[in-house]
Amino acid sequence: MKPLIALTDVSRTYQAGPALCGVSLTVQPGEFVAVMGPSGSGKSTLLNLIAGLDRPSGGTVVVDGVDLATLGEAALARFRRRRVGFVFQFFNLLGSLTVAGNIGIPAQLAGVKPRIAAQRVQKLLDQLDLVGVADQFPARLSGGERQRVAVARALVNRPALLLADEPTGALDSRAGDQVMELLAGLHRGGQTIVLVTHDAKLAATAADRVVTLRDGRVLDDAPLATASGQSASALLRIHGPQREATP
């Protein structure tokens, strides 16, 4: 299968120093990859390079068959709008637009016909359980609802790739769980997702592969087996196997 993302020996150096050093990474269509690491490990830099929001100092970034270095600024912006969806920690919704309006913006910017765009918005409102708040403004919504709107907005142009940067970072644990369940559902539907997080539980629970970054390098790239069917005692012993001492 042709990889959806292929990074080859990618480096990014800022004035303060190197943020990424020689990172190579491929992601196949349909994968859910979590990129984990402490702050300063380079994970957001990596995400920005994959998204075409930033350009590498060295190496190549190929996304959906396109070498991003071959694109000028305008072409790169078009590429981002059409092929990549973003979800951020802070939802970045426009306060002056309704939920439906926010979801529709990227379609409008990408020049999708209004009738088609409206259909897609309606479908996403249904799919993400947002029909009831379609005409509300973001200020009236809970954090979890805002993030669902942000996910819907990220999906409206049917991107090949969904990028999520600490999507539960500003949510309480219940709303966070719901957003992660939403991402897991999209993944089951075939959506390729790259999730950046410092939260091991989030990474391991949702993703089928965990890439650990440290100091701008890939420390480990671990495939995870689907959790299913294991007996409780194979996972967890409340008491160790040794015999109890005589009471």
Partner: peptide, 18 residues
């Protein structure tokens, strides 16, 4: 340590399913 990290990541996933 790298091997151990993988075991713990997989364990987290399995425990979440449990």
């Amino acid at each position: 340590l790298a091997g151990q990290r993988r075991v713990y990541l997989q364990r987290l996933k399995d425990l979440a399913a449990l």
